[in-house]
């Protein structure tokens, strides 16, 4: 059976918020090392990968591998009903058809139990090859969110160019054009590692959707390489991550 306790429901709320705009149904695979989830969006343009190692949890027990087919909209409704500082315990039997969520207030005076029906999802899992990225940029996640929002006012397509001098985001549309450049800073809040310069184009609305994960981490890592999807990674405390992969736009 599975029993996993998070000290604060806030973390689960943030994770669900980071997933639900991009995927609606997904399987959470639980094993003794933690929880994993991988799904493509409906258009198969992006892939989201979530990993939560056991260190994310106050208590974690998973005797046998269990896959939980989740409707994220339903899960979102359940976690919304709990207070952020409640603890939450997820539990499921070995061949479960439902997930139990038990919320407990700080002073243990209020408990709330929910049963969520599980779905039998037949999902494809994709192999993500190890990639030696040409450019790796780290910046405050709030800065990335702001740039993605500002870019999307101008065009559906955002061009990202990265050189040793910095990273540039450009959008060109009916309104005009926007260019935002960031250079590496001496205080280390923006770091830019470039093996070779790269320019690629991406759909801005996906980038914007990825920034739903901003509350999970102060920092975001952006990795680019020629002919491979963009990687946008938010770490989750010290023991997990959410990674978004976005296929580039290519010349017709």
């Amino acid at each position: 059976m599975l029993e996993a306790r998070l000290g604060e429901t806030q973390l689960l709320k943030k994770i669900v918020d980071a997933l639900k705009e991009i995927i609606s149904l997904s399987t959470l695979d639980c094993s003794e090392t933690g929880m994993q989830l991988q799904s493509m969006d409906n258009s198969h343009v992006s892939l989201v990968s979530l990993s939560l190692q056991t260190g994310c949890f106050e208590k974690y027990r998973c005797d046998r591998n269990v896959s939980l087919g989740l409707d994220l909209k339903s899960l979102s409704k359940v976690v919304k009903s709990a207070s952020g500082d409640d603890s939450v315990t997820l539990s499921a039997a070995d061949k479960a058809d439902k997930l139990l969520l038990s919320f407990e207030s700080d002073n243990k005076s209020r408990t709330a139990d929910y049963e969520l029906k599980l779905l039998n999802l037949d999902q494809d899992h994709l192999g993500i090859p190890d990639t030696n990225y040409a450019c790796t940029v780290q910046m405050p996640s709030s800065e990335f969110a702001r740039i993605c929002r500002d870019m999307s006012m101008f065009s559906e397509t955002v061009v990202i160019s990265c050189t040793k001098q910095g990273i540039k985001f450009s959008a060109n549309g009916d309104l005009g054009s926007a260019n935002i450049k960031l250079a590496e800073t001496s205080k280390g809040d923006i770091t830019i590692d470039v093996e070779e310069p790269i320019t690629q184009s991406f759909a801005g609305r996906y980038l914007n959707t990825f920034t739903r994960a901003t509350p999970l981490s102060d920092r975001v890592k952006i990795c680019l390489a020629p002919e491979v999807p963009l990687l946008v990674e938010y770490s989750i405390e010290d023991y997990g991550y959410i990674r978004y992969y976005l296929a580039p736009k290519v010349d017709d």
């Binding site: 493509m40 892939l47 999807p229 580039p248 736009k249 290519v250 017709d252």
Partner: peptide, 13 residues
């Protein structure tokens, strides 16, 4: 420009 698919980069396991 044309949007490529993630499945043209990552193959099914």
């Amino acid at each position: 420009m044309q949007q490529s698919s993630i499945t043209s980069f990552f193959k099914q396991k």
